[in-house]
Nucleic acid binder design. Sequence first.
RNA 1: GCCGGUGUGGCGGAAUGGUAGACGCAGCGGAUUCAAAAUCCGCCGAUGGCAACAUCAUGUCGGUUCGAGUCCGACCACCGGUACCA
Length: 849
Amino acid sequence: MSRYAPSEIEPKWQAAWDEAGTFRAERSEQPKYYVLEMFPYPSGRIHMGHVRNYTMGDVIARYKMARGFNVLHPMGWDAFGMPAENAAMASGGHPKEWTYQNIADMKAQMKPLGWSLDWSREFATCDPEYYGQQQALFLDMLEAGLVYRKNAVVNWDPVDMTVLANEQVENGRGWRSGAEVERRELTQWFFKISAYSEELLDAIDSLDDWPAKVKLMQANWIGKSRGLRMGFQRTDGQGQIEVYTTRPDTLMGASFVGISPDHPLAKQLAEARPEVAAFCAEARKGGTTEEALETGEKLGFDTGLTVTHPLDPDWQLPVWIANFILMDYGTGAIFGCPAHDQRDLDFCRKYDLPVVETFTALEGHAPVTDEAYVPPKTEPVKWVKHFAGLDVATGQEAIDATIAVAEQGGWGKGVTQYRLRDWGLSRQRYWGCPIPVVHCESCGVVPERKENLPIRLPDDVSFDVPGNPLDRHPTWRDCACPSCGAPARRETDTMDTFVDSSWYYARFTAPRAETPTDLDAAAYWMNVDQYIGGIEHAILHLLYSRFFARAMHKTGHLPASAIEPFNALFTQGMVTHAIYKSAGADGRAVYHFPEEVETQGERAVLRETGQEVEVVPSAKMSKSKRNVVDPDDIVARYGADTARWFVLSDSPPERDVEWTASGAEAAQKHLARVWRIVSELGEAPEAAPQGADEELAKALHRTIHDVTMGFESFGFNAAIAKLYGFTATLAKSPASRGAKTEACRALAQLMSPLTPHLAEEIWAELGGEGLVTGAPWPQVDESLLVDDSVTLPIQVNGKRRAEITVPKEMAKAEIEALVLAHEAVQKQLNGGAPKKLIVVPGRIVNVVV
RNA sequence: GCCGGUGUGGCGGAAUGGUAGACGCAGCGGAUUCAAAAUCCGCCGAUGGCAACAUCAUGUCGGUUCGAGUCCGACCACCGGUACCA
């Protein structure tokens, strides 16, 4: 054996795994385990975040393999989406070529990392074989009543005459044109996810192995609320305005009725009155995001119309059009209660509308001025005037009482409402899955016939002008109506890329099937036992996937057991890196790549010039800040095993980890040290001093136990810390050659999920049978884990003052006596008697004086 | 704005309500060496003290508890999401 040379051993073992087909998943009699990491977008290069994410999945996959599971660990590409079109616009290429080239490049980067992936199942969502099956799913969902069309607002760039994504709107303006964006309505396709609101909410409770924070975020997103739907009669006798409110108890504090600029009444008024039309046009300016709507300036327009308060025929309220009221929520109309809602208060102060309190704090009442009084619904308050005769009651009690009164009086109805809106899937873009429907003049909207799938994207398109190339393609839209055969036009909207990623996990179970799934394969492999990905997907992707699994079950593509597709979820943190920054000649910040910088003690300087640079620690890696490291370079410099070890060693997996060159070097030194220990086994003595072999065995089995626990609970950093510790013990151990060889063999096994190439090399060197990958996981000898004595810290008034070591089974009374007799305790007692003595067996003793 | 999260030495972090700082980095000291690389050993939160030891210390302020990094309340800062980025 020679020095540790990852560049030699890593390709060798990767070839060996390939040749043995180690990672090819076939159905078998063994219990299955499906581990999946969120598949990547083919941006062109993998980054350290991918390395960390996929290494975590790999550790799980390899560990489960060693535990006797039949492991499925596939990989593919989330390949549709805007960046490909942006690239085509910027440099004139074609999204398809750009995407497939990126896939080839990234795959070439991924292979050297030695991940246990079954590449035979690979697909990209832009493969017609994939999106054709997605079109089939769409048609089945359409038939099942889970898809429909309605109007919805988009960001419209009036200069480029095109729809913009939210990220293409910067400060209310189009990123290319700089024009003020406006909200415009288009007829679009929707999935009826709202039909599953209740079920998606209730089933969250069954997701035992999901992070609590993700479940909480999803529950809040679905947003179940109980409120009142009621009408305000117009004083002009032209009917009523229907509003929805979650705070009907504040009805006596109403000071206006507000409607959305997209409300039918607003539209009707706008037709007759130019000033209304002008206001509505102004109110539609800006982007469609919830954030933009919530934080933007609140604008109102007094229509001059009035309505009657439902509980007081003499009380008239003005009707305002307000830009912060969304047609999508509730009925598109509200009543404003400024005293108990900050937004309504701001609005009323701005437009000089009255502010009436309906309840006050039990103590310390201060009249509302510029801050609305909004206590939690669970807090009791004093009611000023409440029609249900309440005096002191909580908000929730008042809401319930109000709904009861309204229903009894027949002027309102309690309704359960969800915040969750239907999923708009239409995108006015080229690089996505075409929606397989046809528009026929006589038959209307007609689904495409399944035998005509896939409806392929045309290749001959250009991106020199904004807008959807499918819309302006000379022939692609022309087709025959599937129903009557007359000339008709294809739908030119494509699907949201979230559709692509909502069922890929199911497709991996039978990636070449002629139908979306193969039910036998799905029944065997589903569910995903462990899903791993970024917290940024906590709501949308994961909620859409949960909906899709239900829809696929309803349409016969998944068994009932798979409606919650991910048994366990883990959300990992980012890989960060310091930013190196200096001031350029014009005073603007100049960023430097890590390899241009050298650290000298506490300072960091540019290698070339010696100029000192500012170090900003732990920032998300981004190309513009140049704080990136390329996995290719890292593997070439340190080897894949070092990269894998380091990304998991320094930080708990759910938290961010900072990539540092010194940390990577330390990881490599450690692996070289393990290597050296193995190569020097021959120098160990045949016979060991008394007890040395037993000591080593004890340490080994404690390590097997701890590392196993670490892998079972995503404690990779803790497992690695234990491996560091055991390696140090092993290096110093005077144990016999035989005992040390055994320990090294077990060490290789424990390290194999993390550093599989090094582990294989050691395993082979020490005469292990076959490959260490998949060799049965070492068993813990429980009898070696028990200690017969225990060290107890002694606290006085919660401060540690001393410790005692006692036999594990010592009685409480004996311990108490020992503690009281202890010199340090005597000193603290100062001759007095303790007030209290707390003995927590095996943990701690606390003396209270 | 709203929802969720995070905050501990010079740095990354460890710690079932029970000895705060495991393990690693950086730094300092030493061994080995002609010298270096590599390797090995030791020290390493702050303040005071020769030392024993004492005091302070887990974003800030309060609370619960024999005991709080951990639980509760308020606040500050940063990060993720906010339905067309993926």
